[in-house]
């Protein structure tokens, strides 16, 4: 389980990007952070895995304070897939093997290689092992990056805009993969996402962020059209269809 309490962060003195953010997330569930540009979604993800050090607040995984952990230990607990993923110019196998960095001592072990093989299989990218990452499509690259985070054997996945720049099929593929690996491995995932339809369809919980603060949170059914309309500044309608909530924008 992950909990964040009173997280605050600002890049400049007196100018807070995040203001007292608190939430909890239980194992095996998916949390989507939604909100307009500049709401603080990426900053929140970076504060959770201590890439940025919050000015105030605590992040706990299984009751252990993340911000007090050494960086390698954090990387064993949290797998991070940043936005605008680059993976250097290396083969797919090596790019995924890099995810074992927090576990590798002097040299990689057979376990490390087995984990990579397993992740490649889970992502269905075994056929790409010797392909250079610079030669991959956006969807393939995103799968490689998720595989890399998976071999970290984390408790929590952080994904920053995992579907940005992907076509519709790849968006669905990636979201289905995220859903499946959280269920299969009993992991939690926190993703920032712009596409409200994907967020409502695939997340168990939503946090609506605006100007660094939480405006609304809860299961998709708890978020109302009026709040979304107010935050995004456009008219939004929520339509229930076959058990899903569809977001219609006017």
């Amino acid at each position: 389980m992950l909990s964040a309490s009173n997280l605050s962060f600002g890049y400049r003195k007196g100018e807070l990007i995040l203001k007292d953010i608190s939430f909890t997330l239980r194992a095996g569930s998916v949390l989507a952070i939604i909100g307009p540009n500049g709401a603080g979604k990426t900053t929140l993800l970076r504060c959770i895995n201590a890439v940025l050090r919050p000015h105030k607040g605590i992040v706990k995984i299984e009751d252990r304070d993340v911000l007090q952990m050494p960086s390698r230990k954090i990387a064993k607990k949290i797998g991070y897939v940043p936005q605008n993923n680059k993976a250097g110019n290396m083969t797919v196998f090596d790019a995924v093997l890099l995810g074992r960095n927090p576990h590798i001592g002097l040299r990689s072990s057979q376990t490390d290689l087995d984990k990579v093989s397993e992740a490649l299989r889970q992502m269905r990218i075994e056929h790409l092992v010797t392909r250079y990452t610079s030669h991959l499509s956006g969807g393939e690259l995103q799968k490689v990056c998720i595989a890399r985070a998976l071999v970290q054997e984390p408790k929590i996945f952080l994904l920053d805009e995992p579907t940005s720049n992907l076509d519709l099929k790849n968006q669905m593929d990636i979201m289905n993969i995220i859903r499946k690996i959280t269920t299969d491995n009993n992991l939690s995932a926190i993703m920032s996402i712009h596409d409200l339809n994907l967020a409502f369809r695939f997340a168990d919980y939503l946090i609506l962020l605006d100007k660094g603060g939480i405006i609304a949170h809860g299961s998709p059914g708890n978020i109302t059209a009026s709040i979304l309309s107010e935050v995004y500044g456009v008219q939004v309608e929520l339509i229930r269809h076959n058990g899903n909530i569809l977001v219609k924008i006017f």
Partner: peptide, 22 residues
């Protein structure tokens, strides 16, 4: 001994930080 860290930096600073590299 730092070869894995240099590989991680090659993938980008943010990715490297996410992999526990200082």
């Amino acid at each position: 001994m730092n070869r894995w860290n240099y590989n991680a930096i090659e993938a980008g600073d943010e990715i490297a930080r996410g992999l526990g590299v200082k």
